[in-house]
Write a protein that binds this DNA or RNA. Sequence first.
DNA 1: TATGAATGAGAGTTCATTCAT
DNA 2: TATGAATGAACTCTCATTCAT
Lengths: 219, 219, 219, 219
Amino acid sequence: MPHPLPPPRWQRRAEARPQELLEAALTEFVARGYAATRLDEVARRAGVSKGTLYLYYENKAELFKAVVRRALVGNLDEAEARVAGHAGSSRDLLAWMLTEMTRRVSNSELSGIPKLVISEAGNFPEIARFYFDEVIRRGRDIVQGILRRGMDSGEFRPVDPEYAWRVIIAPVMLGILWKHSFMAVDPHGLDFERHLRSHLDLLFDGLSAPGRKRTEETP
Amino acid sequence: MPHPLPPPRWQRRAEARPQELLEAALTEFVARGYAATRLDEVARRAGVSKGTLYLYYENKAELFKAVVRRALVGNLDEAEARVAGHAGSSRDLLAWMLTEMTRRVSNSELSGIPKLVISEAGNFPEIARFYFDEVIRRGRDIVQGILRRGMDSGEFRPVDPEYAWRVIIAPVMLGILWKHSFMAVDPHGLDFERHLRSHLDLLFDGLSAPGRKRTEETP
Amino acid sequence: MPHPLPPPRWQRRAEARPQELLEAALTEFVARGYAATRLDEVARRAGVSKGTLYLYYENKAELFKAVVRRALVGNLDEAEARVAGHAGSSRDLLAWMLTEMTRRVSNSELSGIPKLVISEAGNFPEIARFYFDEVIRRGRDIVQGILRRGMDSGEFRPVDPEYAWRVIIAPVMLGILWKHSFMAVDPHGLDFERHLRSHLDLLFDGLSAPGRKRTEETP
Amino acid sequence: MPHPLPPPRWQRRAEARPQELLEAALTEFVARGYAATRLDEVARRAGVSKGTLYLYYENKAELFKAVVRRALVGNLDEAEARVAGHAGSSRDLLAWMLTEMTRRVSNSELSGIPKLVISEAGNFPEIARFYFDEVIRRGRDIVQGILRRGMDSGEFRPVDPEYAWRVIIAPVMLGILWKHSFMAVDPHGLDFERHLRSHLDLLFDGLSAPGRKRTEETP
DNA sequence: TATGAATGAGAGTTCATTCAT
DNA sequence: TATGAATGAACTCTCATTCAT
């Protein structure tokens, strides 16, 4: 008469482990920040023992870097491809990009990464540089590309492309910070749809009423 | 024959002390973040012993809160007064406010506070709430007030005041993060003057070329 | 159509394994000491996995004991046989024995064993006792036997056999320690040939100049 | 009605502490070796908490070095002075030195230091070098000085001073190792008085019976 | 028999906090 | 009020040992 085997104390998951560990670590890092994250907790969340972490990552700092790295891989590939494919109007392209970014922010836990990087940039210059090179610089190039195309075609007003891109991106960044820093204390929360609409509206058409635009002030 | 008093081993500094401690703490917190800041270092920077900190602040968390509180006191008073005095055009008022904010960001170490609050919001909900109530909410009210005034007077296009204010503020916030997180790794740095110019330009006049504005597309 | 067998993932090495493991362990223990030796390294050196070690030895301590035991097996057999065969003069016999010991010290990695035993005697009393019984006591008996024979035959002066044997052995022991502890920091190194010559010279003829010997001081 | 105050939880011992810590550490290191010594135990033995150790020594390795350093300070000063004062015969001088060394070995816990240094030389090359320079080299110079003086005066036979000094010192070293490694397992123990007597006897007069000495074998 | 991923107790170290002075 | 030596809990990291494969 067979009776059930006791469940195994643990399982070999050599292939799956790294992903699981990074996911657990991402959650903890995002929730608590680097310093306040205890490896004990990461391990527990991943369902392994503390020692197992060290089979895959040399130490806490390396684990952190791995989390950031993984989160960024391939993040901008689609955007770069789409821009290179230059479909339609520059306005639509830019709108698409900002929409896409907002959508990602609102959906995924990965949006915690930028906040983490910002928070820890001082203590992890290496991470800051990596993020700057892999995300910010590439993002800048994409936006600048769209801007230049739009100005060339006459769709956009002449702006300072060296600086305008940051202004254009800023509301998306603010959405990230809102989500991860103030959502919990803001009784109204943040409706990303509406935030995006406001963003696009102001970005393209500005705040000034048409008849009073400075650009049309010339008599 | 009077002989000189030996110099006192320490001095009563009950009035000046808190300010000095808060300043030292601000510098350290901004440079390293909450967790990585050692009270030893704060004390050394303030020129007192570690124990003395505890005469003025119950613990590290209370010190942190005090730092944040002090940094924000009276920060928006002038802005509120000015808006209440409603001098001149709404556009000028808004421009003045954003200029003022940008100037403060670029000049003062205090701009590290928002970054700190953002970074530690998860671990210090109390701080997050305090900052939200004392800074964000008040800032929002100011901007919304200007927006409503401008829309009423016909200076501004109709926008969604509940959401537009965040979009309007965002580039200032991004300037803060740039300064405290990426300045060190960005070879170009950030010229706050130029950043502000781009910001105001886009904010008021938008990106779209006049003839193509959506708002004027109706025949 | 026969197709070739895949190479076996591992091989039965039941007979050869223990020797290989002990050799690898000896090298590591000698190089690093007991505590600082990691079984990981022993396994790697032996070309097996860590788990395999435990198929042959219950734990680290048992492995250590086995290393020591193996190193000592049959170490003194030849000496005992030769002394029992009492060939030639006692002087030559003693000289032969010290020469033989010095030769082994200078040549073999096995000389690391005494140093190991000395280092770890406190933590492994069992090992200390074993070494004491199997090596020191037997060595003592051999030397004492030669001494007694030489004194009986009039070749040697009367000495205290209970204590003299240690004095006689001491320079060999010092050679071991030199090799394993100070060779690396002594710019001159140690020439074992010359060390032995000095040893034998002083041992047999003493330091005092003949005319002044205390034993001949009688007028 | 006064009732007794509870004893203070701890006392400030800033001046006495380092000595107490080093003593406790010496005892533990000698008893267990470097690796097996737990700082917890050192602290307990010194009557302080673990953290206190770190107020005085940066880490375990530094504590170890400090223990060794302290044990060696001024160890050979008297010997050097005495030899420089060259009172009486070289034989007496050498005998005095070896007697002195043996006495120290037999009396003090400090004799555990050489054993420690020997054991840990591989893992602490810095310590090995330090010991070599401060103790071994100086000891060598002293003995060589005596040897050369004795040979010059005709008291001593010509020997190889470059190598003889080690042979002469060896029994003292062996006494150290005996005490710290085999005393516990040797049922007879070691009578240092008798050991010294044997040492001096053999050293000065050698083992060979007078009529048969090689140096006098010439007809 | 052999593997090596997984474990978990235990070590060194840090640092906010306390308290005798 | 001020000090800074002392504390001890909490953390990261190591590695002998186990066990599913």
